[in-house]
Design a binder for these strands. Sequence first.
DNA 1: GCACTTTTGCAACCCGGTTGCATAGGCTCC
DNA 2: GGAGCCTATGCAACCGGGTTGCAAAAGTGC
Lengths: 160, 160
Amino acid sequence: MKPFQNISVYLGVEENNVIKEQHPMQETLDQRLTERNIKPTAVRLLVLKAFMAQEAAIGLADLENRFDHADKTTLYRTLKTFEEHKLIHSIDDGTGALKYALCQETCDCTPEDLHVHFLCTVCNKTFCLNDTPIPQINLPTDFSLDSVNMVVKGLCSDCR
Amino acid sequence: MKPFQNISVYLGVEENNVIKEQHPMQETLDQRLTERNIKPTAVRLLVLKAFMAQEAAIGLADLENRFDHADKTTLYRTLKTFEEHKLIHSIDDGTGALKYALCQETCDCTPEDLHVHFLCTVCNKTFCLNDTPIPQINLPTDFSLDSVNMVVKGLCSDCR
DNA sequence: GCACTTTTGCAACCCGGTTGCATAGGCTCC
DNA sequence: GGAGCCTATGCAACCGGGTTGCAAAAGTGC
Ligand SMILES: [Mn+2]
Ligand SMILES: [Mn+2]
Ligand SMILES: [Zn+2]
Ligand SMILES: [Zn+2]
């Protein structure tokens, strides 16, 4: 595979040769990246588009499958860059592979932005339950709380 | 390393050549294993003893370090056997390596036996909060709940 | 065009976990 | 106490997800 960073060609491969100017979504993608101080390269636009196109969280392997023409490392670093700039957050749902989901516009990845995640045991999709804050718990005395990871397993609405 | 299953020698290595008959703890270890239908071999007794000697959860790597003379695979399978027979349960605290902790005597690893786990961000020890049941949460409609993994990070009583 | 920075590709590595297979240990039955 | 059997152990190799080092390509400013 030859490196190829030209945006329209990259997008063309994905989008049946519809080039940049014909993408109405393009501006919002661009904007979403630049808002978070991420330079909008071809791969990054594609990855962001993937995130915006589906509700379920996305793992590195998913991206590898979806973008045959992009390298694993590049996709990996794209995820890291997105995470650093708080465009996405990582989710450890216990399946052994990290997944990522878009942060909400207002998100700053502070403890208040933490929320419950849901893993469907049938379709293996993972969802952010953004409206389900993590409940308070009582720790033993002399233990102090920093952060909480809460993953609920069950059946999603499609699988039940 | 030569395989060696003789219990007293194994225990001797660990216990400065105090042999089986001189262990007051021996019977309770034996008992705890046979209660769960696990044949009390040398390695198993040692591993169980390790679990009973400390409160914090134990990972495979810990066992490898503690028992130079025992093979990784054997220790791995010992953990699996213990888990299958519900003598211990596994804890995924997000550190990348599974840890294990003794089940309570009454434990049957049913959803009711689930509890919160605590990972200290300083000493990296993980504890069962057996007295901290996992709080109820409200799922979106059409989602059904199966199980929950809840890991709290913070400072333990020794590290604060 | 040229020099410089950033992004991408490729290969190799790391680590925790897991498997296949051979051997040793211990147990039963005679 | 030996033959046969089942289990536990050891060893080596593998696997998958993640990560790093380094070189080439692409983008940027002049
Ligand atoms: Mn989320
Ligand atoms: Mn526990
Ligand atoms: Zn589902
Ligand atoms: Zn601590």
